[in-house]
Each structure stands twice: as structure tokens, then as C-alpha cells.
Design a protein around this nucleic acid. Sequence first.
DNA 1: TTCAATTACTACAGTCACTGTAGTAATACA
DNA 2: TGTATTACTACAGTGACTGTAGTAATTGAA
Lengths: 200, 200
Amino acid sequence: MVEKLGLRERKKQRTRQALIDAAVRLFEDRGYDQVTVAEITDAAEVSPRTFFLHFQTKEDVLLANTDVRVDLALEAIAERHAGERLPEVLVRAMDQMIFNAWDHDLSSGLAALRARLAASEPALQARLLQRYLTAQAELAQALQRAFPDRLDTTTAPALVGAMVGAVSASAVSALQRGDGPDEVRNAMRQAMALVARSVA
Amino acid sequence: MVEKLGLRERKKQRTRQALIDAAVRLFEDRGYDQVTVAEITDAAEVSPRTFFLHFQTKEDVLLANTDVRVDLALEAIAERHAGERLPEVLVRAMDQMIFNAWDHDLSSGLAALRARLAASEPALQARLLQRYLTAQAELAQALQRAFPDRLDTTTAPALVGAMVGAVSASAVSALQRGDGPDEVRNAMRQAMALVARSVA
DNA sequence: TTCAATTACTACAGTCACTGTAGTAATACA
DNA sequence: TGTATTACTACAGTGACTGTAGTAATTGAA
């Protein structure tokens, strides 16, 4: 976990983090589309071009570190506990992905800001959904490897899709009616349980 | 169904259709991002500005008429047959939305082109997913109205989300491994059945 | 038929996300 | 110490999308 990075790489990570920090601060102040990429790079004291060397799109600066979440879920599937059955593994993987990582970067405020902006900013919402879709494919593959006798190439994606779809939809609907974090959390867990039942 | 439209409105629909036709033709010829909006408007013989009076984004020209699909599903839910239970209604609504409308505009080639381009074009894929999400909210609301004793404000979105998520994921995965239309269709139906089981 | 209100469309100028390219200076490595 | 790599910059450009003001056709009423 303690990577020995060269000086060059450390500098690169520093500018990357500076861009993220600047973006988060400006977005919180003024809202997503009231901030230009040029303003972010100004605040981070780098050239505008540099932004796009680190992030493919303006939205992606808010999706930083989402890979980590997916990796957590993949690990959770791979580390299948003794005697654990399909629904349990699936729920544990989703739990890792959503709540463990949630707690982790709630401190940085990135996840909270992302959720808030995704609700109001269509471009960001669309990009986030797309990220979910690619994550789904990875999860489905891992899950099928873990349960080769139980899942085929059709049911594995369907099952993961149902999970992610149910959890997302319940979260969105909870957020839209103004629920607080705890209620959103409960709604998501309830959705997970609903889908888990279909494979019990 | 036979709307009496004024001359002005008919002209408007004609330019709208001209834009769609021109876009589809050009996209099929050269691919999505090799065609500019300016070229579409040139082909349709209108000004570039006119395009954005009819469609919010370049992607939206390919999402034309998707409202109709959602409306079909909403009708299917409202016209709940005698003695029909939750899973049956849900499956029938999804069926209407996906396959009935599919057959309908397969002739125009729009649905087929959309599916093909959505697989390769991230921007379009993202927009399509977003459209699904908004449709989900409507479906969940309608479904809860139809089954007020069975569904609450948490389970209704979760259930619809699971359905849409499962069907989408299975379709994507089938398309990615190069399945033909029939196999994709089967995968989608199988996904629907999987989720329907969870509420049986 | 005539006049006034509405509106689909156009022309034009501008913003901003994003890209290609060529150059510079710091780091890495032999 | 010299050479290769590479993160970054400067610059010029493309293309999606917007705001605004004007024109001409449709509409509905006098």
C-alpha cells in the first residue's frame, strides 16, 4: 500500500490534487456550470491544457477516485467468505462499494458534493450513470467467476444491473423528496434486500 | 389520435423531421462524431440555430420519440387488466416500452441506429442512460398509484430501477459479445423474468 | 379583407469545452 | 555527465451551444 513514488510522479499527483481541490472549492462556492475549466486551472496555478492531461472531461474531476470504490467491490467478491452464498456476497460487495468508500471520502467532502451536483447538473448525472454501467460489467464478470455453477453470461449482468439499478433509483427518489443521509441510506439498503431476495 | 394541426405547426414538424432524417442519414454514412450539427442543418436546409430550437443537444436528435415509449408503458400500467398482479403488470409495461415500440420504429431504422451508436459513442450512451432514469421516476409513480397497498415510496422506485437496470445490463452485455437481435431479445426477457420473480 | 399578435426561423457574435502540436525544463536513468 | 523521458506550457483551432435582434409567414379577430 505504501508505494515508493519517484519525484516526478509525486509532482504529478500534487498538481492533480491541486486541480481537484480547486474544482471542489469553486464548485461549492458558485455551482458547477458557473465555473469554467480556465478558472479551475487559474486557481490551481497550472495551464488550462494541463487539466485535460489529468481528466478527460470537466465532469471527471468530480469522479476522481471512483475506481477505488469499484476495486473494493471486486475485492469483496474475490474474498468470498467460507460458506457465503450468492446473495450475501452480492450485498457485501455493494455495501463495500457504497458505504465503506462513502465514509472514507465523506471527510474530503467530495462524495457529498458529487451527490448534490449530480442531482442538479444533467451533464454530471449522465457521466455518473455511465460510470456505473462500466462498473457493472466488471462486477458481473467477477461475480460469475465466483459462482460459475450458479450464474451464466446472461444472469450475471442482469443480477448486477438489477442491484445497481434498484439502489440508484431508490437513492435518487429519496434525495428528491429531501430525505436526510440516514433515510437515503436506509432506502438503499432496502433496495439491496429486495433484489437479494430474488436470488435467495 | 388524428390531431388537427395548423399550417404553422405542420411546417414545424416538417423541419423537425427533416433534421432527424438528415441526421440519421449522415450518421449512418459517416458515424456520429464525424458529422457536425452544421452539416445536418445544411442537409436539412435550415439554419444552424434552428437545430437547437428543436433539440437541446446534438444527441437528442437520436432520442426523438422516446417519450412515446414511456407513454406506452404508463398506459400499460394504467390499463391494468382484471385480476392482474404486480409482476404481470410490470412485465407487460416493460414489454410495451421495449418491444412494441421497437417493432414500431425499427422500420425507420432510428432505434437500430441508436442502439448501434450508443454502444460506441459515450456521449450518446450517457444521455440515453439519463433518459432512462427520468423515465424510471414516472414509471415508479404510476406503478405505486396502481398498487398503493403493495408498494410504498421506497419499494416502487427500487423495483422499477431493478427492472430497468437488469434489462439494460443484459442488453449491453449481449450486444457486447456480438449477439444478434433475437439473442438480445431473449436476454432482456430473461432479465425481466428474474426481477419479476423477486416480487412474486 | 385588414390589421395586429404570435412565432418559426435566420443572421451574427460570442462563450467554453476540448484537441493537436511543438517547444521547454525538470526528472530519470545509464 | 550525457541522453531519454515526460509533465507541463503556449498557441491556434474546432465545434457544440447560447443570446439577441430582426424578418416573414401564420393566426385570429375586427
